[in-house]
Amino acid sequence: MTGKFVALVLLVSALVAGGALYYLQVYGFYAEVEPQPGRDVLLMPLQGDTPEPIAYADFVAIDADSSPIRYRACFTTTDPLDALRTHYVTLDLLSPRNAPGWFDCFDAAALGTALKDGSATAFLSAKNVRYGVDRIVAITEDGRGYVWHELNDCGAKAYDGTVVGEECPPLPDTTR
């Protein structure tokens, strides 16, 4: 009888721990981002190093302090995609990061397909929004827009333990 009780306690503990882990990964750390009109959607101009705002509406975003790459946002814009391509830095990214399933405006698979077939374009929004992390904006031909964070070369090196090198800015002091 004692063995069955111990097995039952272990099983219930594993289920509770698994449920808590799932909840924390998918829901627990995310929070809605408060919109900041005129500052939420920025693109890096071809001539210059200060991101510029574009016209946008219907902005919704989520973020989490637990990771610098959990930021996701969706918006709409009336700016023509061809005009944006001629004025702002474009990227050859074809694989946006997935968003939690409950953040249903951000469909990474559909966006990845649109980036591959050319019906969407990825733009650089800002370099190093956090150390080693760039903000990426993708806009489709029909004016739907998406934002996420992506590790840049320095971030990939810093987070995998490789020596960062002189081409990267100094690592932030994390001893505080």
Rank of each mutant, 00 (worst) to 15 (best):
V9Y: 02
V41Y: 07
V12A: 12
T78I: 10
P96V: 03
D49S: 10
A110N: 07
G143A: 06
R176G: 15
A17P: 01
Q36M: 10
V26I: 10
Y22V: 08
G118C: 05
N98M: 12
V9E: 02
L8H: 03
D63H: 06
V16W: 14
D134T: 09
W102K: 03
D104V: 08
V137T: 13
D104P: 00
P51Q: 00
S66P: 00
A156L: 14
L24V: 10
G18D: 05
V16C: 10
L93P: 00
A61T: 05
T77N: 04
D79T: 04
E34D: 11
A83Q: 15
G18H: 07
V33A: 07
Y146K: 05
D79V: 06
A120L: 09
F103G: 01
A109M: 03
L111F: 08
L21W: 15
D65T: 12
G38F: 09
K127I: 03
V164Y: 04
D153T: 12
R97P: 01
I62F: 02
G18Y: 15
E52T: 08
E150S: 06
L8V: 11
Y56Q: 03
E52K: 13
E34S: 11
P172Q: 09
P37M: 02
G38A: 06
G145R: 04
L10C: 15
D134H: 06
E141I: 08
P37A: 10
I54W: 01
V33L: 08
G145C: 04
K157H: 02
P170A: 15
P96F: 08
K116Y: 01
L115R: 00
Q25D: 12
F5G: 14
G18L: 08
F75E: 04
G118E: 11
P45Y: 02
G145F: 06
F123K: 01
A122F: 08
V133E: 09
D82R: 10
Y23Q: 13
T86Q: 14
R85Q: 14
V6M: 08
F103D: 07
R70P: 00
G48E: 01
V60Q: 14
G112M: 07
Q47A: 11
A7E: 09
L151S: 02
A120E: 11
A108W: 14
I62M: 04
L46P: 03
A31L: 07
T113H: 14
E34W: 00
P35H: 06
F75G: 05
D142F: 05
S13N: 12
V16Q: 03
L93G: 01
V6W: 13
D92F: 05
D82T: 12
L94N: 07
G3R: 15
P35Q: 05
E141R: 14
K127Y: 07
R135F: 02
D104K: 07
N128L: 02
A138F: 08
L171K: 12
R85F: 09
G165L: 04
A7S: 15
F75H: 08
M1D: 14
V164P: 02
T113M: 08
